[in-house]
Amino acid sequence: MAQLRCENLSVGYEDGIVVSDISFELNKGDYVCIVGENGAGKSSLLKGILGLAQIKTGRIEYGDGIGRADIGYLPQQKDYQKNFPATVIEVVMSGFLNKMGFRPYYNKSEKEKALEILADFGMAAYVKASFASLSGGQKQRVLLARALCATDKLLLLDEPATGLDPVATEELYELLKRLNREKKTTILMVSHDMNKAVSDAGIILHVNKGSGCGYFGPSSEYLDSDAARHFLGLDYKEKNLQEKGAKEDPETVKEKLNERVKKGERYV
């Protein structure tokens, strides 16, 4: 049974629909990457699932022991958080809010769990540090820890690597991969990193501007799909190479281009 199933989902705001007709399902331990053009509505799709944007049509079903409160969320970073007076532990503990109900304060076991996650992320020395003083990569790890306090079953991430340097980006993706493998955490991530989407994630969800899912399936076959070929400009490149008099047959050219995407070239 799927943890999360979206059927013909259209999401938007007060002034209209942003993303329409999306259907997909998430099973336990899936690592799904949402890709698509800027403005295609990738973030809005996440927000719709989280209840931050309006569901216009279609529906969302939960299953396999997952409820509305079992979703962890790592939003895009906001500017005002840069100078916010908060300690690391204060930020991480706020992940427990969904379990508190009317209880006004956190209990001891929650505090212990927060410390445990921080230690696991190599942030034990920063528990009482100011959140604003951390580096970009450390901040994202703290926010990921906060999301994990909410749940380690299902994580929704919105471009978590934006603004991080290459090392921090790599570390963050390693962390996600580890969570996915060791704890069977289901991951649904919006990302611009084509190479990571293809290599780390098992499944790709391609969102087309205005016209629903361009592709939903295993990442190994994604590069051969029409959606990907159009999105990455592969058709165009192939034609170019052949016109330049490349001697290889079309199949080899295609393979080579796919290799280059997998290696991490965003624009081949």
Binding site: L50, G51, L52, Y73, P75, K78, A86, N98
Partner: peptide
């Protein structure tokens, strides 16, 4: 409601997403 106020002030999207 101190912790809720903290969450809303720090990151209202996250606070909303957690209910």
């Amino acid at each position: 409601f101190y912790h809720k106020i903290f969450a809303i002030t720090f990151d209202s999207d996250f606070a909303k997403a957690t209910g």
